[in-house]
Design a protein around this nucleic acid. Structure first.
Length: 574
DNA sequence: GCCGTTTTCGGCCCGACTGTTTTCAGTCG
């Protein structure tokens, strides 16, 4: 079982948790957490870096000691420091920390005083009323724990960005109706366009006398008010989604937006920069002593620490601050840069709309071209096209292109990559198409070597143009298949083919870290809707968000090209 | 445990809300 960065990061997080329970040096604890974050955001596996003889201490937050621990974990699969800590207390304690309302101090007290070291033991103790007898614990805390432990069992995880949008957008409209409210902005990971969000962070600007907090708790979707003060409140919606609201005055908008957008590690770095300049940054502004020197806009916050504005999608503390300092921030791709969409289905296979309906809907979105890429025959559940039906569709597309104005349909296929790397349709048919998207739809469980070779072999095919949803993952539903993306991206460069960034909210595949790798190798990415209906073109916005998180510029995207240039890149002149 | 425009020691981001206690610790974001 090869060790991945996420495995190492989890070990470091567990060490940090246990050290925290033991009341160890908080900065030592933070060091472990920083290193875990660095590992999670890394494009390459630490294991690969070590094999290449790279010096891990060059990574941010990783010094001599932690580099050695990474080496130990990679080679043995274990970490003696963690084992020792687990022997000193109990491995289950880290589970207790996940229960809302329980931090290291309370977990320690429960362990020391009542010998509680699992959520199950805690549940029994709360039911028996043994908790409120402890110093620092009262009746309310005991009730609180009992409630949270029940929801912990059926703990709702993060939700997909597109689903969060369905809850967030009506709530924003509702909040805007409160007296005195000027701006309502969704910040947090939602604004950073993360694939999933854990909660909604909503920033409101309003006068100090605004009734917006009372307005909020009367929203008919609110199921529970967790906390409510004058400037801050937390509620749970009926869907289970947590909403944190922060109200500030208009002049604090920039500083508050920066603070509330995160990521936390990015904000910490920015505040450290401020410290060096004898400044203090909080959600109300940038301060020199008691004097407020910036904070009206986010740009003014960055300028106060001698940086240009950094777009939210980049704020993950994975190199954006250094890039900003050196003037090397990317000029991120925007939705309006897209000229076309290279992956769509119709009623010919598993789509819900006809060729013409899809073409008109794409034109409505401002697109100049749309590739029709049905499934191929191997994918029988989707009524994939065989040679005869594909050629019929090619004819229909040519007829429709003569009729349509302002949009051009391209002839394509989403052809299955078979187990041995062959494509599901013959060369003499693929030859008649403008583009061939290759896709893995079966045998997700192949070994890393076999899966990688299967795809590499398909990419060697002379007609292969784009690799669809390259890792095959379905967010929160199916893990990516085990595949060596380094090799795939290098192959794409050699062969002059492209990688899809599938914009479907459940896929968002390429992952942002692979976008960065593609960019570094000079491989163009195609942001495709994979539309199965006319509404699905709206999903392109999530693809754009993902591409921006992957630092991609307009020039890094295949389908920002006007049609003549695109045709050249596809290697077809017909 | 990491790090260096205060550089090998002495720092390490900042504030709101709750509950328990009575001035603040704990937790969270």
């Amino acid at each position: 079982m090869p060790i991945h960065n996420a495995d190492i990061a989890m070990i470091f997080e567990q060490i940090a948790d246990l050290l925290e329970i033991q009341d160890d040096n908080p900065f030592r604890i933070r060091a472990y957490r920083n290193a875990a974050r660095t590992l999670n955001g890394l494009g390459k596996d630490a294991r690969a870096l070590l094999e290449q003889g790279e010096d891990l201490t060059k990574l941010p937050g990783i010094g001599k000691d932690l580099a050695a621990k990474i080496g130990e974990i990679v080679s043995t699969g274990r970490c003696r420091t963690l084992q020792k800590l687990q022997e000193q207390s109990s491995p289950g304690l880290t589970d207790l920390l996940k229960i809302p309302g329980l931090g290291p101090k309370r977990v320690r007290a429960l362990y020391d005083e009542l010998d509680i070291h699992t959520p199950e033991q805690l549940y029994r103790a709360t039911r028996d009323g043994r908790i409120h007898t402890l110093p620092g614990f009262g009746e309310k805390t005991e009730l609180h724990i009992l409630k949270n432990i029940e929801s912990y069992v059926q703990k709702d995880q993060r939700i997909k960005l597109a689903l969060a949008a369905q809850y967030a957008e009506p709530l924003v409209e509702y909040l805007q109706m409160a007296d005195g409210v000027k701006h309502v902005i969704i910040a947090g990971s939602y604004r950073r366009c993360r694939e999933t969000v854990g909660d909604l962070d909503i920033l409101v600007t309003a006068g100090t006398d605004s009734p917006v907090m009372d307005h909020l708790i009367h929203y008919d979707e609110v199921n529970e008010v967790v906390s409510k003060g004058g400037t801050r409140a937390t509620v749970i919606l009926r869907s289970g989604l947590q909403v944190d609201i922060r109200v500030v005055e208009q002049q604090c908008l920039g500083a508050a937006l920066h603070y509330f957008t995160g990521a936390k590690s990015h904000n910490i770095e920015i505040r450290k920069l401020a410290q060096k300049r004898k400044l203090k940054i909080n959600e109300y502004g940038v301060f020199k002593g008691k004097e407020r020197v910036a904070g009206d806009t986010e740009e003014s916050v960055y300028n106060a620490v001698d940086l240009p504005y950094i777009p939210p999608e980049l704020r993950e503390n994975r190199g954006e601050i250094e890039a900003a300092r050196s003037g090397l921030l990317p000029k991120l791709v925007e939705h309006s840069d897209l000229k076309g969409d290279l992956h769509a289905h119709t009623t010919a296979t598993d789509g819900h709309n006809t060729l013409k309906e899809m073409a008109l809907a794409a034109r409505e979105q401002g697109l100049q071209y749309l590739a029709i890429t049905e499934h191929s025959k191997h994918l029988t559940v989707a009524h994939g096209l065989d040679q005869t039906r594909l050629l019929q569709q090619v004819e229909k597309i040519e007829e429709l292109n003569n009729e349509l104005k302002g949009i051009t349909l391209l002839k394509g296929i989403e052809v299955d990559i078979l187990e041995d790397g062959r494509l599901d349709l013959a060369d003499n048919v693929l030859d008649k198409l403008d583009l061939v998207i290759g896709a893995v739809h079966s045998l997700f469980h192949l070994s890393r070597a076999n899966q990688t070779n299967r795809i590499l072999k398909a990419m060697d095919h002379p007609h292969f143009t784009i690799l669809a949803h390259p890792t095959g993952r379905l967010l929160q539903d199916r893990d990516p298949y085990d595949v060596d993306m380094n090799k795939i991206i290098r192959k794409a460069r050699e062969r002059g083919c492209f990688l899809e960034l599938n914009a479907h909210p459940q896929r968002l595949d390429l992952l942002d870290t692979y976008c960065m790798m593609a960019r570094d190798e000079g491989v163009l990415v195609s942001i495709n809707s994979d539309a199965h209906s006319t509404q699905d073109f709206d999903n392109l916005r999530y693809g754009i968000g993902q591409a921006r998180r992957g630092w991609l510029e307009k020039g890094d995207i295949l389908n920002t090209r006007p049609l003549p240039e695109l045709r050249k890149l596809l290697g077809r002149t017909m």
